[in-house]
Design a protein around this nucleic acid. Structure first.
Lengths: 112, 112
DNA sequence: CTTAAGATTCTATAACTATCGAACTATCAT
DNA sequence: ATGATAGTTCGATAGTTATAGAATCTTAAG
């Protein structure tokens, strides 16, 4: 991977709101098991983290528990996708997304 | 460490020029041993990487082999320092800098 | 003391980014 | 069809960032 790809990845994670979104997905905070995330990543209201249903409807839930407009959240999702960190797909009204583990691993490799 | 600290670190690495600078230090490209860095990080002219002398005069050498003004390079160094990624000190006319390994490790931990 | 070299600070500018609201598209339920 | 829900795209705006050059400060050498 080229240096510019890494800077792109880091750029995607450089905005705090976007990093928060990424961590919600990464730490699987919305997983069916209701995996707990570190308190520093806990969201206000916990409306997202306490709801069951995996990473489905991720978009809506993240809108609900962050103080951002839909268009802004949409933009952040796109940035994360452009950097290759996540992939998202819509199935009807459900928005599913998941981490691209290879890319995350490449960051760790990069810093080895 | 707080989420905002991580976004700060990622921001520091989000600029390609700055990331290049960081990698030069990180990969120890200017070490007395002349450690080789991956070709994708090789600099034009190689005037930096081929010179002996460790991380001394890092500033000047980086100015020489990157196409950036001194003030810009100074700015980038400051950003890397602010994020806690490196520490720099001047000893006379020599500018020494080194990686803050704990911070780098904390990124890896963060992505564990 | 003077000069040169190394690095910082200040100012300006052009480019980029985060954010919102409005308009739009797509899907689902009734 | 109608209305409600989910997400995207567009345009505007306020704020941030990368960069250069000029002025300044610091240290070393003559």
């Amino acid at each position: 991977m080229e240096l510019s790809n890494y800077s792109k990845i880091f750029k995607a994670l450089s905005n705090e709101q976007r990093l928060k979104i990424f961590m919600m997905i990464y730490k699987n905070c919305c997983s069916p098991e209701g995996a707990v995330i570190g308190s520093e990543f806990q969201l206000k209201g916990e409306s997202c983290c306490s709801v069951k249903g995996g990473l489905e409807k991720a978009f809506t839930r993240i809108c609900d528990c962050m103080n951002l407009s839909r268009s802004t959240v949409s933009h952040h999702f796109k940035e994360l996708q452009n950097a290759g960190l996540i992939t998202c797909e819509r199935e009807g009204q459900t928005y599913r997304c998941k981490i691209n583990k290879e890319v995350v691993d490449s960051i760790k490799d990069f810093l080895k």
